[in-house]
Amino acid sequence: MPLTLACLHTAESNATLFQAAAEALPGGALTLTHRIRPDLLREPTPATLEAVAALLREMAEGADAVLLTCSTIGGAAARAQDAARPVLRADAALAEAATRRGGMVEVLYAAPTTEGPTRAVFEAAAARTGAQLRLHLVEGAWPLFLAGEAEAYHARIAEVARGLSGRVVLAQASMAGAAALLPEAPPLTVPAISVMAAARAALKARDSR
């Protein structure tokens, strides 16, 4: 029986990225459902995070695991850990993978509102391995995303990534398309890594029931 992963997105375009990541897994092992809530993409105040956490707990009632794909409100995942099923923060899985081997990790983000949450989740992961971090706001990228100019958005991200020397990480799910423009040194991206992490968590939870 396939595992079911419920995804909460704040951008409709991200649903396609996570669906593709799930379909790349062997044997049709994972079924995704998607809830799109662009209204939740705002400053991560305590009230906002608690509202998101309540929604995550609700989504967990009908799934093997839940994946919150928005970096800005990622802190809500920790508030929803009393849900019926595992609740994962997508960029936390990325941070763990990026810092596992130590060394220098170059973290790119596009939305100014995600700087604080992104820094916190990567610093926590780096503290466990001794990895070094440099965070970079990709100047001028986010207005392109908001305008629906995906090609220009990804091109701008790739331009900045090419100038970096460490392990490059694209910290927001919406940035993943830029990886195709960097075949010489593919960066780590959110969708594939977090879907795998969520599948493992869902399987572990199912086996324990």
Rank of each mutant, 00 (worst) to 15 (best):
A15N: 07
Q81A: 14
R156H: 04
R89N: 15
A126H: 05
A161C: 10
E61S: 12
A141F: 03
T33R: 15
A93E: 10
A205R: 03
G74E: 04
D39Y: 06
G102L: 02
A11E: 12
T189D: 02
E159R: 14
R100C: 02
I157K: 02
R156G: 05
E151R: 09
T31H: 15
R209M: 12
L68S: 07
H154L: 08
A192R: 13
Q81W: 10
V121L: 12
R37G: 03
A11Q: 08
T189Q: 08
T16D: 15
R79N: 14
V105F: 00
V160M: 14
A124E: 15
E139Y: 00
L135C: 09
E61M: 10
P46T: 12
V160Y: 07
Q19Y: 02
A197M: 13
I73Y: 09
A15G: 15
R89F: 09
R42D: 14
V195R: 04
H34L: 14
H34K: 13
Y109H: 01
P44N: 14
A54C: 09
A192D: 14
L68D: 07
V168M: 13
A127P: 01
V190P: 03
A192Y: 04
D82G: 14
M1R: 13
V195I: 06
A171T: 05
A78T: 07
L17H: 07
A178I: 12
S174F: 08
E23W: 13
E58S: 10
M196A: 15
A63K: 05
C70Y: 01
S208N: 11
G74L: 07
A90G: 10
L94D: 05
A90R: 08
R167D: 15
A199Q: 07
T31I: 13
L41T: 05
D207F: 10
L144C: 08
R35I: 10
P186M: 13
A11Y: 08
Y109D: 01
R37I: 04
A84V: 11
A192M: 02
I157R: 02
R57Y: 07
G166P: 07
A185S: 11
P191V: 01
T33Q: 12
L30P: 07
S13C: 12
P112E: 11
R101T: 10
M104P: 01
P112S: 05
L181H: 02
L135P: 00
P143W: 10
E23R: 15
H34A: 13
P186H: 07
M1Q: 12
W142R: 01
G130H: 01
R200K: 15
T129G: 00
E184L: 04
H154Y: 03
A126C: 12
A77Y: 11
V138L: 04
V138E: 06
E12W: 09
A15W: 03
G28Y: 05
D207P: 00
L164Q: 07
A192L: 03
V52D: 00
L188T: 13
A185V: 05
R200I: 06
R119Q: 12
A78F: 11
T10H: 00
L67C: 08
A126G: 06
F145A: 04
T33Y: 04
M104H: 11
Y153Q: 11
P26E: 03
G74M: 11
E43M: 14
L32M: 14
V52I: 14
A93F: 06
A180S: 12
V190N: 06
A84I: 05
G177S: 07
E50P: 02
T99F: 02
V160W: 04
R100L: 09
P187S: 08
